[in-house]
Design a protein around this nucleic acid. Sequence first.
RNA 1: UGGCCCAUGGUGUAAAGGUAGCACAGCAGAUUUUGGUUCUGUUAGUCUGGGUUCGAAUCCUCGUGGGCCAACCA
Length: 555
Amino acid sequence: MKENSIPEPNHFLEEIVAADLAAGKYESILTRFPPEPNGYLHIGHSKSICLNFDLAAKYGGKTNLRFDDTNPSTEETEYVESILADVRWLGFEPANIYYASNYFDQLYEWALQLIRMGKAYVDFSTPEEVAAMKGTPTEPGTPSKYRNASVEENLEQFERMRKGDYPDGHCTLRAKIDLAAPNMHLRDPYLYRIKHAHHHRTGDKWCIYPMYDWAHGQSDSIENITHSICTLEFIPHRDLYNWFIEQLGIFPSKQYEFARLNLNYTIMSKRKLLQLVKEHHVSGWDDPRMPTISGLRRRGFTPESIREFARRVGVAKRENLIEFSLLEFCVREDLNKRALRRFAVLRPLKVVVTNFPEDQVEWLETENNPEDPEGGKRPIAFARHLWIEQDDFMENPPPKYFRLSPGNMVRLKSAYIIQCEAVVKDDAGNLTEVHCRYIPESRSGADTSGLKVQGVIHWLAEGHTQTAEVRLYDRLFQVEDPAAEADFKQALNPNSLEYIPNALVEPALHVANAQDYFQFTRLGYFCLDPDSTEDKKVFNRTVTLKDSWSKGQKK
RNA sequence: UGGCCCAUGGUGUAAAGGUAGCACAGCAGAUUUUGGUUCUGUUAGUCUGGGUUCGAAUCCUCGUGGGCCAACCA
């Protein structure tokens, strides 16, 4: 690649790649996304996925997906499948799909090599003993009594570990590095532990499994990964990463670290997300309130909006807590352009148009998407009996209330202007009907009435509706940073989900497909939930529309 | 009190010794048959103290604040 063809970098990792390319250090770059298949991917992972794939694509390289499956007790095939599906849904296709477990044989050979070099030993100390012998950050560690066993002895014991002569936890293989190192990770780290567990890929072939540090850098090296990008908490591991590669004399992959994504009002810990699932605080990993990719997908977020979000949050090394409103902005921006407009009345209030004939239906039309000139129009029925949103009528309105109230006029979108003449209440004093007259000369597109009204509301004609269930979501937690709470579950928002079992929607929604994105006019963006049946559709609210009215009211 | 990483408006992120910019959020206005969209304007920032320099967000340094590290997790 010629120097003048190297794209302009936009963040420090791109600068590193651009500089490496300019210096001729690599002909092309290779990155990897290395999830552990012990849970579903979340929005934080999407930052890492976009970073790795986009970085490689921008600089003419490729990206592998590698499952970091070195711990059989927490990993499952279900997670492998969901991760791959999520990566693809986001719009990325890995150059290769690999597993760290593919390299178990090689890793084992390298462990033997390290033992022969006198740089690894089998230790029969208990975890507590090892912890004590590690010292503290200010005091050096003390050597284990097994540290100076002969190469032959270590080879023999490691072979017995591998053969299954010992129960779980009986001993470990440790690297012999530096017990006085200020970096605690260099104080003779564990390489292998015994786990008589069934592995999702290798089955029962092994009863010893490599630790992260022993597996990760070498896996990168085997694949010739040039830039191994991980999060900040792995910074102290970098010395170890380099040490192993140097000792083995293998391809020198390099590790770089960036700050992971944090989103306010939610959590990113897979452990905690698993807890929410297992304890049924949510319906599953794909509950639309979850920050998982599958949850966001079910909620109605588009892959494009998530990629745009990942681009906008930037890449740097300082800790951050991104505002949820940025994600909302990204999805609204995308959905505004593509979502089909439809009328839906969530909480119906009956309107009787007193001067419209009882048995007549007038067919009007309204646009499918005002942002899309090619979007076309659809017919809507107008009749004497209508439904409007309860929120769109107030008997005693505050100042600047533009909707319907006694004596006031409002435009029924794409139809007529109506004026409220009377309200009807039941014996208990509850509002049951609003009586209005319509202005025949005010028909949309043919308005000769000369009237100016400020409010425009959505509506449906009685008998020309379908009943649907609508699910409204709010933030899952009521505090900005639930992870900082003593008990994050105490911070759960009890009102994060509201069911509206009998909302009215226009008949056109009967043919809604799972991949459709809708805007229920004036209410927000919605999508079809997989819980839908032929008889009853279920819609999820992705996000509300921006609402400068209710915002002003709350003040 | 060992080592490492970090510090720019409310939130993110640029500025590689030379006018502190952009986005989101906020506020105000214009347009609008979605109180949406679009457009315009606007509020608000270099953690503190020293030093180097003609000139410091940037380099050095004393602090301060935040984060990470002593799992048979990744």
